[in-house]
Design a protein around this nucleic acid. Structure first.
Length: 396
DNA sequence: TCTGGGGTCCTAGGACCC
DNA sequence: TCTGGGGTCCTAGGACCC
């Protein structure tokens, strides 16, 4: 059964969702979403008008301000994005039983086995899909169609904005030949620079080489690159699996040197991670602490627990111990801390009940589910971990 | 005001085991 | 007589993606 994958990519998703939710932004052509003017963040998305000034996702906000001081900078809100994304998914699910959201603004649809239904082209389906998404959610999208995920995605990239492109089976190599290697998934800035030093910049160059020749240049990576250059990659859509990690991190509005203040923030971040684990009925066994020094030197420290947990206290205990170890280095280097974060990984599904669980742990579990209920009703900050009180009092 | 936040996957070395 | 070899688990870091 021939694979046929459709990739839907929403155009300027974050910008458009902000416009829908904040009508005062609608008349503003030059709109940049991601953080306020003075934030230490990066651009999440920019309106097409702002992009003409060279602003793009991932660019530091400060740099975007310099490129286009007259632009409006807006922070945006995750729940709004999430709700908009779900609304789009609901439309997509009417077109295929297999819809995999790759992120908030991207989805893959499986059309394998539709050769009789649509013997020639999927473009008419894509057109209807685009119109229905537009009509029901007010959002524009671009759609790429291909024999696998990679080609479908590259096709939608080429089609942006508001375009459709189909690459039929057999035409992958020709389509890819005109692209830079950097366009291939997995070829980021570092790899692209390394390949460029070897004289490789375009997909057609890799296509023209033998695998042995490429192997002499690249070693073990040759095979994977060769496959991608010829248009292979992701013929099936795998169902969604358990997440691999749950994390929260924050870049502080100013660099901090006070460990107590940092521990208070760590307590809040850990409570968020624990809350998400419980919400998704997961438990984590490995706790990772992340610290970024003010000179951008970044370290992680991790610890694997005896038993997986979703309890604030157990996660925090591990996180704090890791923090104290890592903070000793910060102090030794006489630096401040720019970013602090915590992650739970090594995840499993939370067990229904454990008959042999010690009673004190049972009490903690009851406590956290009570906290979860209050938070569900009144918001996360209605309950604050004691360890975070100092931070709350100071900066709220 | 340079450089976010949430993820995924991979590598490499050490410990430990058989 | 100097050191095998595979597998698994663990930690730390890094590239990449949106």
């Amino acid at each position: 059964m021939a694979a046929r994958i459709l990739h839907v990519d929403l155009d300027a998703f974050f910008v458009e969702v902000c416009r829908q939710r904040h009508p005062e932004l609608r008349g503003i052509e030059l709109l940049v979403v991601g953080g306020r003017r003075d934030s230490r963040g990066v651009v999440q998305s920019a309106s097409y008008a702002a992009r003409r000034f060279g602003i793009h996702a991932g660019m530091p906000i400060g740099q975007a301000v310099r490129l286009c001081p007259e632009a409006t900078f807006f922070r945006g809100s995750f729940p709004h994005y999430r709700d908009a994304s779900r609304a789009v998914r609901a439309v997509l699910q009417r077109f295929s039983p297999t819809v995999v959201m790759a992120s908030l603004d991207e989805a893959y649809l499986d059309f394998a086995g539709t050769d009789r239904l649509y013997p020639v082209s999927l473009l008419p389906v894509a057109e209807r899909l685009r119109d229905e998404v537009r009509r029901e959610t007010g959002l524009d999208c671009s759609i790429g169609i291909g024999p696998n995920r990679m080609v479908a995605k590259l096709a939608s990239d080429s089609a942006k904005p508001r375009g459709l492109m189909e690459v039929r089976a057999g035409w992958e190599e020709g389509f890819l030949a005109g692209l830079p290697l950097r366009a291939l998934p997995g070829i980021g800035p570092k790899t692209a620079a390394r390949l460029a030093e070897l004289g490789l910049a375009e997909v057609h160059q890799v296509q023209a080489m033998t695998e042995d020749g490429l192997e002499r240049l690249l070693g073990g990576e040759a095979r994977a690159l060769k496959r991608r250059a010829h248009g292979h990659g992701g013929a099936t859509l795998r169902a969604e699996r358990l997440p691999r990690s749950v994390s929260r991190e924050t870049t502080l509005s100013r660099d901090l040197r006070d460990p107590e203040e940092l521990e208070a923030i760590l307590a809040l971040l850990t409570a968020r991670v624990a809350g998400q684990l419980r919400e998704e009925q997961l438990v984590g066994r490995t706790v990772t602490l992340k610290l970024r020094h003010d000179d951008f030197h970044t370290v992680t420290r991790r610890r694997t627990l005896e038993t997986a947990t979703d309890l604030d206290g157990e996660l925090y205990q591990a996180a704090r111990a890791l923090f104290r170890g890592a903070f000793a280095d910060v102090r030794r280097r006489n630096r401040g801390v720019r970013l602090i974060g915590v992650a739970a990984s090594n995840l499993g599904v939370a067990a229904e009940a454990d008959l042999f669980e010690p009673p004190e742990r049972q009490r903690l579990r009851e406590l956290s589910s009570a906290v979860d209920k209050v938070r569900e009703k009144y918001g996360f900050s209605s309950v604050t971990p004691a360890a975070a009180l100092r931070f709350r009092r100071r900066d709220d």
